[in-house]
């Protein structure tokens, strides 16, 4: 029984159709990379999975929550699906601890002590235990992104979505974030990553999906997909897109 099930999803911005009938499934514990040119719909697909973008038709089921065009049941779904953004989006008026504790406290109803325990645990997980009282502004980009990951993990999600989480970082800072993602993957977290880090996708993702013009163009085990791309478009993308 897949933990993410996407059936014939269509998404339009006005006259522009960004997703033209996407279907896919992700099993529990699977790490799936989504690659493709900008404008291919890969980020949009990810954002549809937790309802940040409403869909016009089709059906999305994540961790047992069904999302359709009506948009009902969103909050229940979001308790089980974490997302980390390219631009971190920490809350600048709250310290690291409060950034992480906020949602467990107000959305899950945890006590302050339990929420604090989760903040400590998830910060340790991303290697930033000592930054618990820091202000977001005083952290490097890489550290902010790891706090954002910890903030999502504190909800104990069943699925984690990562939307180009290293794209805003200086090259020397991407390593620490990728290492955090790799550790998560090893721990068995179900993960979908939209990424431009091809080497990372090939090494860490069990499966890679190549999106092209709003459709799932080619998919397969990462090693096979990167090693022997079957379609012309993917070959062209990999030839030009490898950084």
């Amino acid at each position: 029984m897949p933990v993410v099930q996407v059936d014939q999803v269509h998404k339009r911005y006005g006259p522009l159709e960004v997703l033209k009938g996407v279907s896919m499934a992700v099993e529990r514990g699977e790490v799936v990379a989504i690659i493709g040119r900008s404008g291919s719909g890969k980020s949009t697909l990810l954002r549809c999975l937790n309802g940040l973008e409403p869909i016009q038709s089709g059906r999305i089921e994540v961790a047992g929550h069904v999302l359709d065009a009506s948009g009902r049941g969103l909050r229940a779904l979001r308790k089980d699906v974490g997302i980390v953004f390219q631009s971190y989006n920490l809350f600048p008026h709250l310290r690291v601890a409060e950034n992480i504790m906020l949602a467990p406290r107000v959305a899950l109803g945890l006590s302050k002590r339990d929420a604090r325990a989760r903040a400590e645990a998830t910060l340790a997980q991303v290697g930033l235990a000592e930054k618990i009282e820091a202000w977001p502004d005083n952290l490097s980009g890489g550290q902010q992104q790891r706090v954002a990951i910890a903030r999502s993990l504190a909800m104990q999600p069943k699925v984690m979505l990562f939307d180009e989480v290293t794209s805003a970082l200086d090259p020397e800072l991407t390593g620490e974030v990728l290492a955090t993602l790799e550790a998560l993957a090893r721990d068995g977290m179900t993960m979908l990553l939209v990424t431009h880090e091809m080497a990372f996708a090939r090494r860490v993702a069990h499966r890679t999906i190549f999106m092209h013009q709003g459709l799932l163009h080619e998919e397969g085990p990462s090693e096979a997909l990167f090693g022997a791309p079957r379609t012309l478009e993917l070959r062209q993308f990999l030839a030009g897109g490898l950084k």
């Binding site: 979001r78 974490g82 953004f85 631009s87 989006n89 949602a103 107000v106 959305a107 899950l108």
Partner: peptide, 19 residues
């Protein structure tokens, strides 16, 4: 993005405003 980040953490609209 502050709206998006807080919505993605399952906060209600009122909680987004308040916190």
């Amino acid at each position: 993005p502050q709206w998006e980040a807080s919505a993605a953490l399952a906060l209600t609209r009122a909680q987004q405003y308040r916190y």
